[in-house]
Computed example of a mutant assay.
Amino acid sequence: MRSVLAGALAVAVAAVSFTAQAAVSPEDQIKLRKAGYSYMSWNMGKIKAQVIDQSVAYDQQQILAAANTLNAIANSGMGALYGPGTDRQVGSQTTRVKPEMFDNFDDVAKLSGDLSRATGELVAAAEADDQGAIRTAFAAVGQSCKGCHDKYRMD
């Protein structure tokens, strides 16, 4: 039953993602995905400052909020923001995505799934208030991001 529900949810998310793509111009797709990744980066920085660098006092609620934000963005259907024509500059929006990403959506889907799993594990570690597990999960999220950046993001 659980796998049937998960499958139905995946179909619903995909349908909404494709509908959202059609309603958003290519320029806005680039703008929105850049905003999403910037917000993810900011939240990664909060976790890094508190748990890795320890340059800021540890606050479990802030870590949990940042982890939940990362997980929400990773599962938000941002793939809909990679529509036709978004592999190059559109209007005032530039992109660092490599054009070959658009020919490798199966690989991108796998990488997206890896990110989703990693952010879910980060949420679980933050909920448990286990700083060692948070460090491990944080590293996995970073590796997941790097895996996509190394293949599909221009410097």
Rank of each mutant, 00 (worst) to 15 (best):
L5Y: 13
I30C: 00
L115Y: 03
G132C: 06
E121V: 07
D150A: 09
K98A: 12
D150G: 05
G85V: 05
A125N: 02
T19E: 13
S3H: 15
L64Y: 02
P26K: 00
N104G: 07
D107V: 13
R33N: 07
A49H: 01
A12L: 10
V24E: 06
Q60K: 15
L81G: 02
G113H: 05
A137H: 04
A125S: 06
G147N: 02
A14Y: 14
A22R: 13
G147K: 00
L115D: 08
A124W: 00
S3D: 15
K46S: 11
K34L: 12
D53Y: 03
V24D: 05
F18C: 11
R96T: 14
V141F: 02
A140D: 11
A14W: 15
V97K: 10
T95P: 03
Q143R: 12
G142A: 05
F18L: 14
G147Y: 02
M44F: 09
G83T: 06
N104W: 06
Q61H: 11
Q61T: 15
L64G: 03
A128Q: 06
T119D: 08
A14D: 12
I47W: 00
S38K: 12
A10K: 10
T94E: 13
S25P: 00
A118I: 03
Q21L: 09
L81N: 01
C145P: 02
G7F: 08
A72S: 12
S144L: 01
A139I: 09
C145S: 02
A140V: 10
I30Y: 00
V16T: 14
T95L: 06
M44D: 07
D129P: 07
P26L: 00
M44R: 11
C148Y: 02
D130F: 00
S55W: 07
S3A: 15
L5R: 14
E121Y: 08
M40A: 12
A118S: 11
R96L: 14
P84C: 10
Q21N: 15
L115F: 09
L5W: 13
S38T: 14
I134D: 00
L64K: 08
K31L: 10
D103E: 13
T94Q: 13
A49G: 01
T69R: 11
T86K: 01
G7H: 08
K146E: 14
Y39I: 13
M1H: 15
R96N: 14
V24I: 14
